[in-house]
Design a binder for these strands. Structure first.
Lengths: 236, 236
DNA sequence: CATGATCAAATCCTATAGGACCGGCCAAAG
DNA sequence: CTTTGGCCGGTCCTATAGGATTTGATCATG
């Protein structure tokens, strides 16, 4: 996984071999992110700095740094002198807004990416769709985690294949993977068959190399996701 | 100013009066942001944690927290165990990518905002355009700072008036105000007359209440900004 | 019963100290 | 003269300590 590049490892070159080191704050960041995504930290819950430090057996300093980074992703909110809390649950309005934003960004990404697609890109997209098809879709978190990961990976690959750092940033600002987990956590996947077919359509459009067709397929997919999820949204 | 909501103040309610408090990390954040925008910190320069702490007469802890937040904005980059550096200068390709992204997002913002515009919104936009017209445009930083601030405020207002938190986040991910400063720092404003007229056109479209016209005016503006800036771009 | 004061524990926030690592400088050896 | 090795200052990173603040409970009072 690797949702939002949390930190950066230091490539230490020593005696020809290069080892990769990582500071504690990065580890704390990843730990907190995992807790947020698999539901161990529920929306609205307080995330105590000292408590997290004790739990992870580190000092509060790296925890502060990790939380400061997390805040900018929207996963946690901070109030000065009061601490951090997990962001509240998604409402139906939040979901509608997210889809509106995705509809503005993702078809553009598809058009740009398709215009400069390579066989390597196609192979990566194909792998994501294949993973989508083979991933289990049971009710427990562990069972749909891989599905959501493949779903997000497909869309993120397209954003990255635009070669435009700002389109990647804009896509990442929508929360990418994380929002998926928060939306569907506890509900499970109900529309996998449809979603897989739509992803396949996008992939087919990429294979033809027609940017407009790719954009149309992506727009179609996002609209249908919106329609299905509003029909049986978890939160009103 | 208030570019990217850095931290959050604690609203302390005491005896009917509510005072707003703020922790040191927020102050450091704002101080660093100001240094970045007015050129005191040049692209590529190292931002030492301990050094900044001494300079601002605080301990390194709040500086670490402020820098962790700044990193997520793309203004500074971090390498584990080596510290922070100001992000490198904008190349012509970077600028083209930024405009491509703005072209994908800002016309949509204009359409959404126009569809639900109020007289208060119009007044705010009108004030931004008025400030744009009256702001000095001399060669030194202090003289075009207000101009850039009004420019960015105009666009940010439209993003906020969409009422869509994710469109705001996507717009903010593009760097908003900050990129303007980094692009034009040291160059000055050369296209103010044209830009002001284009902003006025967008405002006029908002006044008519036609979302499609607003989107078209905004798209026209962004395209023309791209054209002019590529013609006399500071960095090749 | 409702309301406000008081106090203790938890928590946030900041400063300080020290370990680990890097880079420059200089002296000594080859 | 070149190179090697050690020293030293700077920096990052983490832990710890203590002050400031919030929170929640307990208790007194109208």
């Amino acid at each position: 996984m690797q949702p939002a590049p949390p930190g950066n490892r230091a490539e230490v070159r020593t005696k020809g071999r290069t080892i990769s080191r990582q500071v504690l704050a990065d580890h704390v960041y990843e730990e907190l992110l995992a807790s947020l995504m698999d539901g161990r930290l529920e929306p609205g819950a307080v995330v105590s700095i000292d408590g997290t430090a004790r739990e992870l057996d580190v000092s509060p300093t790296p925890v502060r740094e990790a939380l400061a980074r997390l805040e900018h992703t929207g996963m946690v909110r901070r109030v000065a002198l009061k601490g951090y809390r997990v962001a509240p649950v998604f409402t139906r309005e939040d979901f509608a807004e997210l889809m509106e934003a995705r509809l503005a960004i993702e078809p553009v990404n598809a058009r740009l990416a398709c215009a400069r697609v390579t066989s390597e890109h196609l192979a990566e997209l194909d792998r994501a769709v294949a993973d989508l098809k083979t991933a289990p879709r049971g009710p427990s978190f562990a069972e749909y985690r891989d599905y959501l990961e493949a779903d997000e990976r497909f869309h993120r690959l397209i954003a990255e294949q635009t070669g435009n750092q700002f389109m990647v940033a804009a896509y990442a600002a929508l929360g990418g993977q994380v929002q998926r987990f928060r939306l569907f956590g506890g509900v499970g996947i109900t529309d996998a068959e449809y979603a897989i077919a739509e992803h396949q359509s996008v992939l087919d459009a990429f294979a033809t190399g027609d940017p407009e067709m790719a954009a149309a397929a992506m727009a179609d997919h996002v609209k249908k996701v919106r329609g299905r999820a509003i029909a049986d949204a978890p939160a009103g």
